[in-house]
Simulated scan of single mutants.
Amino acid sequence: MRDSNKQDAVIRWASDSDVPNLAQVHIDSYRSAYVNIMPALYLEGMTLEQQLKRYEALLSEGKEHVAVMSVDERMIGYLVLEHCTDDVAQHRHGGEIHSIYLLQEYCGRGYGRMLLDWGIRQLGEMGWTHAIVWVLKDNRSARGFYEHAGFILSGRERLIQRGAELVQVSYQRTIS
């Protein structure tokens, strides 16, 4: 897919051959996104071998839909879509943006919004009426990104473990 504002960007569904790049983009983007939010030891402890296994399993299981974004044939980001994992009744018709990450040098240039909009369209084509995303409560940048894209804070919170106990908040938006 090409976007009129970003002629150099291509978004497509991931294949097995993308696993090595996916794993590296995951590590690099995760570390930059969560510096000073997640414990440094947790971020530094991420290994390429772990991420290779993770993405091999993710693609082979097929429960989640993984897409990659490339610019000039270089993978710069990815997103993962799935059925909403939240058990709230209103989310039974929701698709979840499980992950969306870009390499740091591509942030703030419109690529993230392009990838998000593409993902929301895909959720709509899959039949979901709502898009849901969970964001770390302390990640002001990501929260602003979703709010700017029309997501509304739902008031739900949950705890996750990433080297420490962290709070996530849920956002949602109607897919039109």
Rank of each mutant, 00 (worst) to 15 (best):
H65S: 06
Y146T: 09
D3I: 10
F145E: 07
I175A: 11
Q7E: 14
V135G: 02
G127P: 07
R92G: 14
V167M: 08
I97D: 03
Y101C: 12
S15T: 13
G112L: 11
S70Q: 14
A164N: 07
S17Q: 14
R158E: 10
R2Q: 09
Y30S: 08
G77I: 03
A40V: 13
K6H: 14
D87V: 14
E147Q: 15
L22S: 09
G95M: 12
L159C: 02
S70Y: 08
S154Y: 05
Y146I: 09
A33H: 03
A142K: 03
V169K: 08
V35N: 05
A164H: 04
I120F: 03
S176Q: 09
E56M: 08
E96Q: 14
G112F: 00
H98Y: 14
Y30G: 00
F145R: 07
Q24M: 13
M46C: 02
Y106H: 12
A89L: 11
G119H: 09
E96S: 12
W128T: 03
S99R: 15
Q90K: 15
H130N: 13
I132M: 12
S60F: 06
I132H: 05
M75C: 04
R140T: 15
A89M: 09
S141M: 07
R173Y: 05
V135Q: 03
I120T: 14
L41A: 08
G62F: 06
L52T: 11
I97L: 15
S60R: 13
I27S: 02
A89S: 13
G163D: 08
A89K: 13
V68A: 03
V135P: 03
G108F: 01
S32I: 05
G150R: 09
L41I: 02
D138R: 13
E96V: 07
K6A: 01
